[in-house]
Structure formats: C-alpha cells, structure tokens
Design a protein around this nucleic acid. Structure first.
Lengths: 179, 179
DNA sequence: GCCTCCATGTAATTGGTTACATGATTCT
DNA sequence: AGAATCATGTAACCAATTACATGGAGGC
C-alpha cells in the first residue's frame, strides 16, 4: 500500500490539499508513482481517521489542507527504514518488445523508432528541468537525485532502442556495424 | 488489460498449460510482467470462451494445454500494431529515493548501497543469460533484445546508485570528486 | 453570461494479491 | 512413507481506473 506512504511523504514536505496532491502525482511525481483524485480523496480521509494527518486549514470551494502529524512522520520513517521496496514490474512497453517477432517487420521498426523518440523527448524534458535553478533544501536534493535516475534511464532506453533498430536491421540484419 | 495479451503472445510461441505459463511469469518474463496462477487460470478460461485460445491436450493431474487460435493471433497482432503502450509508472524504489531526505543519513546511504547491490546482482544474472548460447528463432531474438534492455537498465541504475552515494557524501557532501 | 480552473466527493467496475482448497505423480 | 513438485481451481479482499455528480471562484 504505497499510495498511503506517498501521501505521507509529500505532506511531510508541506501541508497540501487533495487537489494539490493530485497535481503533484500528475507532474513531478508522474515518473515515479501515479494516482487519480478518486483514489487520493478517500485515502486522505482514512489517513485523517487514523491520526496520521490532520486538517490544518479550509479554503474556498471546500478546500481542505492537510498536514502530517507526529504519528504520520513516525509511520513514513518506519516504512522507509524498516521495509523493503516491492520490486514487482509491469512494463507494457517491454512486453511488446518481447513480442516484437509477432509484428510485421516494418511495424516492429516503427515501434522501436517510436520508443527512441519517446525516450529522447522525455530525456530532453528532464534535462531541461535539471538545468534550471533549484533550491538546496533536503527535499529538493532528493528530488534531484531521483531526476538523475530518470535522466539516465531515458538516455539508456533511447540508446537501447537505437541499438535494437540496428540489431534488427533495415531489411534483414546488417553486419559490420559496431554496437 | 495486458495480461490477456501477454498470455496470447506466449501461446503464439508454443502451446502451454496454465502451470507452464505461471512459471514463465515467474522466470523469464518476471522483468517485464508479473501474474499469479490465481489470475492466470480464470483468464485462460475467458480466452477459451472467447475463442482466442483452445485446449489442444490433456495431461496427468488435470493438466490442460492451450494453443492460440487464428482469432487469437489476429487479436494479439491488432493489439501490438494498433494500440500504444500504457506508460503508467509505479516504482516503489524510486518513490523511496524521492523521500530520501526523510531518512537518517546513515539509513539513506544503506538504502542506496542496497540499491547498487541489487542492480549489480541482477546485471550479473542477466549478463550470464546473455552470454549463454541461444537459439536464433524470431521469438528468441526478441527475447534477446528485451534482455539487452534489462542489462542496460540494471547497469545504469547500479551506476546511478553509486553516483547518488557520492553525491550524498560520506558525512556531508564531499567536493572535488568528479561525477 | 460563459468558460476555465479549482475543488471535492461517490459508485461501478476491473485488475491483482492473498488465502483457501484439493489432489495426483514422482523422487528418494 | 514422506517430501517435493505438478496441477488446477475458487473466494475474499485490496488497489486502481473510469464514470458519475456537484458546485464555487475568477477572468474576460
């Protein structure tokens, strides 16, 4: 149940509303975790009932701001330090690579070209974020380390897709071209 | 609903039982997709009812072997060629990196050391598989391309974890050490 | 007045995990 | 005889998506 801890971790940085949290999952955290507002609101209510967060402000249009409590901080730290990450993988883009041989050769090449383009574009966006001025608070430093993983990941996969295209060859495998 | 297409793709290679498929998800496909037998058996029944696979043999202990039908092959090809991969990411190990600042510094370093070790070990296992003799049929070639992504991915993340440790510093950030 | 964004929630359904349940075959 | 592995299935529960539902505030 990582959504719970994702919410606690985000609220450890600063108080936010469900709406704010939804935007975080849609933007900066999208590379790492995803959640919709319909999952976030009920989970916030449960965290509040469990005493791990509490409402600290009310705004226009029924806006409710939540802050983490001491119990919540203890709980997110316990999770971080005493449990191991769930490594379950479900990556549809790789599943498709596994089945590349089922595609018409031209479609397979299209797919890999699309993958390279996708990862190259994402790499560009991440590099842009990395090159823009950032604060030096601990949370921002952690975010920068996570972003670095993203940058290296996208670069690796873009390069891999280019390699796979060469490996597949234009019309049948080519030889004498270095990896 | 990618499990459905994962099963069709695997059965496109050769007829298998639910038990066989469960083992594939536990071994060679584990890097790419995961599923338990309790999800696989009902899904096979649905695919059979939909005419996308059919039972081609019965063995000891109620074993049932399924093969893909023409309709099934058409469906998996349609999925591969006419739909785009779902890019939703949910990676708990990166979520924890995002919250690294919440950990005691020593625990944070432990975590990154663990990550490096984990990815280095996985890299070793993948490289071993890659260096062992493989067949040259189309499905094996696709599997090799997928494995190459895995190798590069693990190497990248192991190197990243090492970088992150240096970036964090032993006791406070060190300077003058190149990235 | 209308559009966009802000803001919260619930309901129905699907996808996935854990636990329950059973039994045959093979190896030692 | 006992253990490990083969083999299939269902039920209860949890996690996540899609769709439904409502309405206020601010800009133009």
């Amino acid at each position: 149940m990582s959504l719970r801890h994702a919410l606690l971790g985000l609220l450890a940085e600063r108080p936010m509303s469900g709406y704010d949290l939804t935007k975080v999952f849609d933007s900066s955290l999208a590379y790492v975790w995803s959640a919709k507002h319909s999952q976030i609101y009920p989970e916030l209510a449960r965290l509040r009932d469990a005493g791990l967060i509490r409402q600290v402000a009310a705004g226009a249009r029924g806006r409710k701001e939540y802050a983490i409590t001491d119990a919540g901080l203890t709980e997110v730290r316990r999770w971080l330090q005493e449990t191991s990450p769930d490594r379950t993988v479900r990556d549809e883009s790789f599943l498709r690579v596994f089945f590349l041989w089922l595609m018409e050769p031209a479609k397979a090449r299209d797919y890999l070209r699309g993958e390279e383009e996708y990862h190259r574009a994402k790499l560009g966006r991440y590099e842009e974020i990395a090159s823009s001025p950032a604060s030096e608070d601990p949370a921002s430093r952690s975010a920068r380390i996570t972003l670095e993983a993203g940058i290296r990941h996208e670069r690796t996969l873009a390069d891999w897709a280019a390699w796979a295209l060469r490996h597949l060859g234009g019309r049948g495998p080519r030889r004498g071209v270095p990896d």
